[in-house]
Design a protein around this nucleic acid. Structure first.
Lengths: 187, 187
DNA sequence: CAGATTTGGCTAATGTAATTAGCCTAAAGC
DNA sequence: GCTTTAGGCTAATTACATTAGCCAAATCTG
């Protein structure tokens, strides 16, 4: 039997891709093994189990989201940075709904959890956006939570098809960006 | 063997309670049957299966959330109404994390889906809040989506323990309410 | 290069949970 | 009381996750 040449990175990447295609809820060890041309138990040589796989996919997603937001923000400040960050984040979630879903509900296992570190990086990208606004030191945490809630809420509701009524979604999102910008400016 | 006297409402209510206590992910047909003092297959006389149970729990949660928000808003307008609605919504999610989690990811099966109707009622409660602000007709949908994203995002992030860093969460939430009020007022 | 070791596949077996089939009796209606 | 229906039950099937233990391919070492 020839080796398939798998390693944890390959397995996690394939799992993330499969989750994006078929939905996070439908990601099983069996379906992932099949996609990789391997029998189910073989996956356990690379990940500790389904929960470990989920955690790793979440870490990958957060890391990629942080990269996307960080890159989008480069060279911008103030409203432009905010808009770029928000759009990049939403685009990421819309393009990778499965892996983003994996990030909901993961609680970091320990202080050295890669998912937690990736989450911090994502947070850092948003913190950079806030530097373009005149926000009191004591308000930065609140503003960060606000931005995160806003982006997360909109993205997940859209991903879950939670917006079913009239008006155009893209327009709503631009409206949301304008709203946040106005609010942050008027501190 | 004496009858247990179950009906769909009892089963769904017990399921919602169990989800709140042990987490939505741990809700199984088996654990629910045990709590009701009945064997697993008996539940199928009242609900069509796990997916149907989830959908019904989601409908219950949305309906209760709509009641809570609607009641909280009574007699208030403007900022007071906004604060009351937001606090009531968050309180509901914090007190009933399991059943609220059931609402994430349910897609309405048809036009007569009770979950969709309950969702509309919840939306209506927030729409009432917006009437206290001077918002152009064309912006109401956008503002509604904003409020929903904000509340949903904050509540789910908190429920998932997504806020792990410094500053006080209640304070952040009040800050968020003030932010939204300011933004809506300045239309 | 031969032999030893580690690595990454595999089959087989176990445990848990959802679901279906089919039985059997308590409750409700006549 | 007799019939019907509704709501329990046991038993069986299926789908997954997971573990145990085998075996060959890579890799390392002398």
């Amino acid at each position: 039997m020839p080796r398939a040449g798998l390693d944890p990175e390959t397995v996690v990447a394939a799992g993330a891709a499969l989750a994006d295609e078929t939905g996070f809820a439908h990601l099983t060890m069996g379906s992932l093994a099949q996609r990789l041309g391997v029998r189910t138990p073989s996956l356990y040589k690379h990940v500790a189990g389904l929960e470990d796989l989920n955690r790793r996919i979440a870490a990958l997603a957060l890391s990629q989201a942080a990269d996307a937001v960080g890159a989008a923000v480069q060279g911008y400040a103030g409203r432009d940075a905010l808009a770029a960050a928000a759009r990049a984040f939403r685009a990421f979630v819309v393009e990778h709904p499965g892996r983003y879903a994996a990030t909901i509900g993961v609680e970091p296992s320990g202080p050295d959890d890669p998912a937690a570190a990736a989450g911090q990086r994502l947070l850092g990208a948003f913190t950079a956006v806030l530097r373009g606004y005149e926000i009191a030191e004591s308000d930065v945490d609140h503003a960060l939570r606000l931005l995160r809630s806003l982006c997360h809420g909109f993205a997940t509701l859209q991903a879950a098809d939670g917006f079913r009524w009239s008006a155009d979604i893209d327009e709503s999102f631009e409206w949301l960006i304008a709203f946040a910008d106005r609010g942050l400016r008027a501190m």
